[in-house]
Amino acid sequence: MKHTVVVAESQTLFRDMITNFVEDMDEFRVIGKLTNGQEVIDFIQEKEIRPYLILLDIHMPVMNGLECAKKIKQLYPDIKVVLLSVFDDEESIETILSVSAEGYILKSSGLDEFKEILRFIVDGKFVAPQSLVKYFSHRLEALQKIERESSFHYIKETFNQHQDLNNRELQIIQLIKKGWTNRMIADQLGISEGTVKNYLSIIYKKLGIKSRVELLQLLTELIG
């Protein structure tokens, strides 16, 4: 049994081309060729047909692909949605991920790549351009670096030459590194805001500095 597909693309040339690509595959059968997102919603509701897969151009009139994808996922979460776009910039990528689509295909993709992506999606995989994968790989590395450098162990190792700093003082330095306010630190540690200020005064004295700004500068110099 073939998987049913709806193609939504505002430009006739691309719509026909994508439809031909899909119908050339044994696994799929196109049951609708539409021009905007609202037509997709109407098609599903009026005909009471739930296609297996919907291919949505992001840039369409009336209702664009992102709005349509979001609505489909709210109403029919089991329908697989793949977004089509000519853009692969960071803003587009993050917006696309926010609608929980199963895939993202660049219109510049070749025929073989296009077919392979659809087959991967049928297998339950999320598929995206290499540029997207690289982008989020770099983002993940940066977040992991921030998390590692804000850990208690890392802070303790960084200040290992200051043997007079106790664990509570190192913990406060750790939270300062994360950008927490005195009130946030107090709530986290179950102490008063005044006690936090007292600890900071002791920390400044032990490190030979005079203020929070100097502490942050010191952290920047030691950690980056």
Rank of each mutant, 00 (worst) to 15 (best):
K71Q: 09
D26E: 15
E39D: 12
M63Y: 08
M184I: 03
R139M: 08
T181Q: 00
T35R: 14
L118K: 12
Q161N: 12
L83V: 11
D57R: 02
I191L: 01
K107V: 04
Q38M: 14
D78F: 09
E23C: 06
F114H: 10
V30F: 11
L140G: 02
G224C: 11
V30K: 04
L207D: 02
H162V: 07
L111P: 04
L222Q: 15
K107P: 09
Y52C: 00
D78S: 10
K33C: 01
E147L: 05
T35H: 12
C68D: 09
L165M: 02
R139V: 08
Q161V: 05
K156S: 03
D26Y: 06
R29F: 09
S98I: 04
L56K: 13
A186N: 08
L222N: 12
K71V: 11
K70R: 11
S211L: 08
V62K: 15
V62R: 13
K145M: 03
T158A: 04
K205W: 10
V5E: 04
G37A: 06
E9C: 04
V5P: 15
V99E: 15
Q217R: 14
L106G: 02
M1G: 08
E48G: 06
N166D: 12
I93H: 03
A142H: 06
I185V: 09
F21T: 00
L106Y: 06
Q171K: 01
D57M: 02
M63W: 10
K80P: 00
E149Q: 14
L66E: 05
Y104C: 07
I155D: 08
E39T: 06
Y52N: 10
C68S: 15
I18N: 12
Q163P: 00
V99L: 08
V127D: 07
I202S: 04
G194D: 07
E91Y: 06
E157I: 02
H153Y: 05
P61A: 02
I172K: 00
L53F: 03
L118S: 07
K205F: 12
T35I: 06
K197T: 08
R119P: 04
F43R: 13
L200N: 14
I203A: 02
Q217M: 06
I105L: 11
F114M: 05
L106D: 08
I173T: 06
L97K: 11
I223E: 13
L219F: 07
K134E: 10
S85W: 09
E193L: 00
M17F: 13
Y76S: 09
D89R: 03
E39V: 07
Y76G: 12
L111K: 14
D57W: 02
S98V: 03
D89V: 03
G208P: 04
Q130P: 03
T195L: 01
I18A: 03
F136A: 02
V62H: 11
T4N: 07
I93W: 01
F159E: 00
A8W: 11
V127F: 09
N36W: 11
Y76P: 15
D164M: 06
L207F: 03
K205H: 13
R139P: 00
L66P: 00
E113K: 09
E116I: 02
N64A: 07
K206E: 04
V82N: 06
L143W: 05
S100D: 14
F159A: 03
S85Y: 10
